[in-house]
């Protein structure tokens, strides 16, 4: 559901905007009580604000994008579902061990067409985050996802995956139940699906835990989402033994949507609402809706075999080396 109560939490790089907005508010308050006309001053400040907004939001650095991708109010899978689909029915469990709430999935209708939707699910407040394990799945989460994908294939429904995780959960129980196998199995089985698969990174795409929903015919990324082999903090601590250098690592590792588009790993980058998806859920969902329609349109005509071959060629071509 869209949030309207308070202005979203601001991020470091937005600081100049916050200050300017505050100043404008102060002036406006002042004119209400005092008997001076400051409208021309306010107008010029507002012009400056709009120019500054352009400067900041049109030139976002990788680290700025990482912050937006991690924004606590950033819309999650369950936030988008009511805007993107109708008749969503959530389906639970992997039939083997349990129901991992760090991944949600189900059947829904996309502009009248039945589809299967699967996505990582993190929480916003602490309580929900604990329930969702901060969006970090256990093996049963990946096995539930695979079960729903196979089900979609049986009924010839396209599959839409929403990726939003820091990574698969690094815990004792996860290892005991085969975290590696669960992820690996998804990669191989997704390769063979005879229905269109569209994977959309909506927040953080952290390593193998993200890729386990990512072997799609098309991979799309929201403008301020990331897809990486390791978090910037993790990279910095391994490469330079200092996690404080995360900002540098975020740039060096090329993890943002524009980077992946340039490397031809993803098919589309989905624009975000100015300042980030958290400013307007409904409008953002509209952008995603358009992108899904385009990708589905391109994939719908392909036969099961052609879809498998398209996926094969897509991933086969990724990698930079010389012969």
């Amino acid at each position: 559901m869209p949030k309207t109560k308070t202005a979203p939490k601001s991020m470091g790089f937005e600081e100049p905007l916050i200050q300017l907005r505050q100043k404008i508010e102060e002036l406006k308050d002042y004119t209400k009580t005092a008997d001076v006309d400051l409208s021309s001053e306010i107008q010029s400040l507002e012009e400056r604000l709009s120019k500054l907004e352009n400067d900041i939001y049109e030139n976002m650095k990788p680290w700025d994008r990482v912050q937006v991708a991690r924004h606590p109010e950033r819309p999650t899978t369950l936030d988008y579902i009511p805007f993107l689909f109708e008749d969503f029915i959530e389906l639970h469990g992997d039939r083997l061990y349990g129901d991992d709430e760090a991944i949600v999935g189900g059947i829904a209708s996309f502009h009248g067409q039945p589809v299967t939707v699967i996505g990582h699910q993190r929480g916003k407040a602490t309580k929900e985050n604990i329930r969702r394990n901060f969006g970090m799945p256990h093996p049963e989460g990946y096995r539930k996802a695979l079960r729903l994908m196979k089900q979609a294939e049986k009924f010839k429904r396209p599959i839409i995956c929403l990726i939003d995780t820091k990574g698969a959960y690094p815990g004792k129980a996860a290892e005991e139940r085969g975290q590696s196998e669960a992820i690996a199995r998804n990669l191989v089985e997704m390769a063979g699906l005879e229905v269109p698969v569209i994977s959309i990174v909506i927040g953080e795409g952290g390593s193998g835990g993200a890729l386990a929903l990512g072997v799609g015919n098309h991979i799309l990324m929201l403008e301020n989402s990331t897809f990486s082999v390791i978090s910037p903090e993790g990279a910095a601590s391994i490469l330079w033994k200092d996690s404080a250098l995360a900002q540098t690592a975020a740039e060096a590792m090329k993890i943002t949507a524009p980077d992946l588009l340039e490397m031809k790993i993803i098919e589309r980058m989905i624009s975000e609402v100015r300042g980030g998806a958290h400013h307007d859920y409904a409008k953002q969902a509209g952008f995603i809706d358009e992108a899904i329609k385009e990708s589905l349109g391109e994939l719908t005509g392909l036969s099961g075999k052609e879809l498998i071959n398209q996926r094969y060629e897509k991933f086969k071509s990724i990698g930079i080396f010389s012969e």
């Binding site: 690996a184 390769a191 890729l211 790993i265 094969y312 990724i318």
Partner: peptide
């Protein structure tokens, strides 16, 4: 790590070939 997300994608590449 030095090849970033390209390395991650090799997991998918080898998987499509295995399938």
């Amino acid at each position: 790590m030095q090849e970033g997300v390209l390395s991650l994608m090799q997991m998918a590449k080898t998987s499509v070939a295995l399938k």
